[in-house]
Design a protein around this nucleic acid. Structure first.
Length: 575
RNA sequence: CGGGAUGUGGCUCAGCCUGGUAGAGCACUGCCUUCGGGAGGCAGGGGUCGAAGGUUCAAAUCCUUCCAUCCCGACCA
């Protein structure tokens, strides 16, 4: 490809609405352009990258025996009504609309319903199982807050696969194969990632593992052990119960704490460690109107864990200050478990404290030397909090460390959730209809493009792994308008490389001065750069620079195309 | 959906407070010079100042409403 007839549209300045580095570089490098919030155009340069990522995924999925299909973007409401998700999924994510016949449709945010419908029509016999269908296709989720460019777009490209099985053993097998395949895909992309235990969320099912690319811009926090391979999304990481404190109970005392509302303020005011205080959150209950959740002052409530407690109302809702005032007669900053006549659910760490400090259920007063049993009774003791750095790993090996991650993949064992609701059965050996077991496996293709940039960039721009780069080699002739030899040499190297099938870009743009060409090549992140100038040609050499290592050298013009051919073959086979 | 901020040529922004002929840099077109790290000069094209109302002799500027975009909190590939 020649730059003069290609579309290189780089920007010198950082776009005002791009916050994270991948978003900035994607826009500046001319890979994508925003059309609307969370909706992007892909320019030629960007599409080349997207196709590379797609290609790696397709190759590995095919190798794992999955069969590629393509399902529609627009889906009829009936299927969603049938699975029960037309209402359930509707917290705004489903973009719904009506056709000319007044029938309800939605833009597909995922394809469990469609594939299950397809499977129940196409799969009739146990002999056809197991089978794994996948597609690489556009999804639309009407996110409340799209952000960070491609990291959380509303329209995005996703690889989604769905497997069907006679039994859970077969499902488990394919699930493990997909786990392994996902690791291979991410390794090929040279990503630093972790598979982590995950919550199943609105997709449902039993087991589930997320694949996270480590990056500070990640929206998830993952916890992993310093001494084992335990890793979990913080939503799921279990906080073990500490040994109960055995200090002798001291006399309960009430102290005035005028105006001190937050744990931090109270701890400072009373000169106690926040770890020796508890905070009490009042939430709505399922049977009782209000329930108290008690956590250690320095800990944070984990809403996913809390939502699994039957006594709490389904979407976890904090009680309003007015409700609290009416029921307890004090304001939010002064609540404590002592003398509270509503159910009290204590976190394991809070329950282990002795002689702790808490609100007195009376404005501007707190209690000190509170002890469980003597002063307050917990209705239940459960794991309610987020783990923190240094907590013991749930498997008993080592301590937990926390890092930020970008979720690029998620695999689930769905079991019979959809197949049962939609009656997807096949006949077994005895001719009896049995409900199929299902697995589903998602991977964010466009999100991966951004995640790769998050890990591979420097202050000059993107630094693509060779297998992802839009071009493998860029040739920059210097002053080709003045030197016929420079122009001719660049052209002949370019032609020779094309002959060998090398993905090469010749920057023959007239009017662009050398500095601008260098800057563009670095911004776009092409791994290998060759500079053809009069200087080198005097001794029949060109200059070479490696974008990834920064190494530079001189290479003889003679045989240079063949040199790069073998270099790239080697590099790509390693990838 | 709650809280905050911002909307001025394709991009980055000034002008607004204190109303009075729409600006700069980048990008774009033409010419000239320049040409090994984002060149310079001259000449040009391009904006109903997010939209609609209102106040005023006069609104980018003041007021109201709406819309869009971004950021912070509950969800997901």
């Amino acid at each position: 490809m020649k730059a003069s007839s290609y579309s290189i549209s780089t920007l010198k300045e950082t776009p005002a609405d791009a916050e994270v580095i991948s978003h900035q570089l994607l826009i500046r490098g001319g890979l994508i352009r925003k059309l609307a919030s969370g909706i992007y155009n892909w320019l030629p340069m960007g599409l080349r990258v997207l196709h590379k990522v797609e290609g790696i995924i397709r190759h590995e999925m095919d190798a794992a025996g999955a069969l590629e299909v393509m399902m529609p973007v627009v889906q009829p409401a009936e299927l969603w009504v049938e699975s029960g998700r037309w209402k359930e999924y509707d917290d705004g994510l489903l973009l719904k609309f009506v056709d000319r016949h007044k029938r309800d449709f939605c833009m597909g945010p995922t394809h469990e319903e469609v594939i299950t419908d397809l499977a129940r029509n196409e799969l009739k016999s146990h002999k056809q199982l197991p089978i794994n269908f996948y597609q690489i296709q556009t999804k639309f989720r009407d996110e409340t807050r799209p952000r960070f460019g491609l990291l959380r777009a509303r329209e995005f490209l996703m690889k989604d696969a769905y497997s069907f099985h006679m039994n859970v053993e077969s499902l488990e097998q394919t699930y493990q194969l997909m786990h392994q395949t996902y690791c291979q895909i991410l390794e090929k992309m040279r990503l630093d990632f972790r598979p982590v235990l995950a919550d199943t969320g609105s997709i449902g099912g039993s087991a589930s593992v997320e694949f996270h690319v480590l990056a500070d811009s990640g929206e998830d926090t993952i916890a992993f052990s310093s001494a084992s391979d335990y890793a979990a999304n913080i939503e799921m990481a279990e906080a073990l119960a500490p040994a109960p404190e055995t200090d002798n109970p001291e006399a309960l005392t009430e102290v005035a704490t005028p105006g001190q509302k937050t744990i931090e303020a109270v701890a400072t005011f009373l000169q106690v460690d926040a770890k020796r205080t508890v905070k009490t959150l009042i939430v709505k209950g399922s049977t009782e109107p209000l329930v108290a959740l008690v956590l250690r002052g320095d800990h944070q409530l984990n809403a996913i864990k809390a939502m699994k407690i039957a006594a709490l109302a389904a979407p976890l809702t904090l009680a309003s200050p007015e409700d609290i005032q009416a029921a307890l007669g004090c304001s939010v900053g002064s609540i404590g478990p002592v003398g509270l006549n509503i159910p009290i659910i204590a976190d394991r760490s809070a329950a282990a404290l002795a002689n702790f400090t808490c609100g007195a259920n009376k404005d501007d007063y707190h209690l000190q030397n509170v002890n469980w049993g003597r002063d307050a009774i917990a209705t239940a003791i459960v794991d309610l909090r987020n783990v923190v750095e240094g907590d013991p790993s749930p498997d008993g090996l080592g301590q937990l460390q926390l890092k930020k991650g970008i979720e690029v993949g998620h695999i689930f064992q769905l079991g019979e959730k959809y197949s049962k609701a939609m009656n997807a059965t096949v006949l077994d050996e005895t001719g009896k209809a049995v409900v199929m077991n299902m697995g589903c496996y998602g991977m964010g293709v466009t999100r991966l493009v951004a995640a790769i940039i998050e890990q591979y960039h420097d202050d000059r721009g993107m630094v693509w792994p060779t297998c992802i780069a839009p071009f493998h080699v860029i040739i920059i002739p210097i002053n080709s308008h003045k030197s016929a030899e420079v122009a001719a040499t660049a052209e002949s190297i370019y032609q020779a490389m094309r002959q060998l099938g090398i993905e090469v870009l010749l920057d023959d743009r007239e009017g662009a001065r050398p500095g601008a060409k260098f800057a563009d090549a670095e911004l776009i992140g092409i791994p290998h750069r060759i500079v053809v100038g009069e200087r080198g040609l005097a001794t029949q050499v060109v200059e070479y620079a490696n974008r990834q290592t920064g190494a530079t050298s001189e290479l003889p013009v003679d045989g240079i195309a063949a040199h790069f051919k073998s270099l790239l073959d080697q590099e790509l086979s390693n990838d």
